[in-house]
Simulated assay, not measured.
Amino acid sequence: MKTTSLFLLAFLLAYAGVAQPMNRFRDSQTVDAFFKYRADRKRPLILAHRGGPGSADTENSITTFDKTAKALPDVIIEMDVRLTRDSNYVLLHDPTLDRESDATGSVADKTLTELKAIKLKTLSGKLTDQPIPTFTDVLKWNRNRYMLALDVKPGTDPLLVMAEVEKYKAVHSVFVICYSMAEAQKVRDRYPSLWLAVGVNDMAGLERLEKSPLASGRLIALTPQKLQPVSFYERLHKLGILASVGTYGTGQLDEKPLSEATMGYRDLVKQGGDIITTDRPLEVSGLF
């Protein structure tokens, strides 16, 4: 345990304060290279779930995004995009404001002006002075420096969200998490060079994907938290599709002490996982 802690400290100190240049993700070739499947990949890509907040941080906030990105320059930052009553976009995981802010009620029932007056709470429930960020705020903050994973929540049209992305010339610094293959195909038809992520939950789902036009490329498979047979990941890799595995949630690796979970994270990658979607991105990255 002591050796692991010292290694993690050295890792964080080495990267502390590092920021990526503007327009790092400037074209489709850059994104394709970032996500290209490589059998010899030594380290998994790390996806920071809701931005990777600790207990004293707010989720889905620019403050947390900035903190995580400076510590892990190659991190993928995940965020939840929701539609307001007046057709604007803000970041919030839950459909209601109750858990994450000092307000109550549905996000969809509020105007952007009303939402801007609301303050976020930390994961531990402490009120902060941080406002709910708009999606536009995030695009302006990012300036194509980091890869953003857009979880466009049900009821919010991903094509309209992508129109906002286009407006800020940020198409090459995002990928869209889709809730069905049909939705993914709709987005792919409009944005053929855009990377997408879609759930592939079992061998039957994998077989359906293999017969779909989506299997032609630029796809990330959101695979079960329970590890699948090696052959499952091998079939994805044969198509050039990366496998993302979530380790967050009740009973999952992120909920266990790091000393107990270390081999679990490493087994995930050994089995065939390419991206780890985690609530503790800094600690997990330090294991590889």
Rank of each mutant, 00 (worst) to 15 (best):
E78D: 08
K238R: 12
L242V: 04
T262I: 13
P131L: 10
A103C: 09
K153I: 08
G17E: 02
V200I: 15
T134M: 07
K119S: 15
F135L: 14
L45Y: 13
Y191N: 02
D98K: 14
R145H: 01
L242Y: 06
R24Q: 11
I241H: 02
A71Q: 12
N88V: 02
L8F: 12
L236K: 04
L227V: 10
G246H: 05
G155L: 07
I177E: 11
D66A: 15
V171P: 04
I241D: 03
A197Q: 15
R50V: 06
Q228V: 03
C178W: 09
I62A: 05
D80W: 11
L120Y: 03
L45C: 08
G246L: 10
L219N: 01
D94S: 11
K140E: 15
L127S: 03
Y168E: 13
A103R: 06
D57N: 13
G17P: 06
F232N: 00
L282V: 13
L83Q: 14
Q185Y: 15
T84S: 12
A117R: 15
W195C: 02
K126G: 12
A10M: 09
V200E: 02
A170Y: 03
V152Q: 05
G205M: 10
E183L: 10
A39G: 11
K36A: 14
K153V: 09
I276F: 07
G125Q: 02
Y248E: 05
E210H: 10
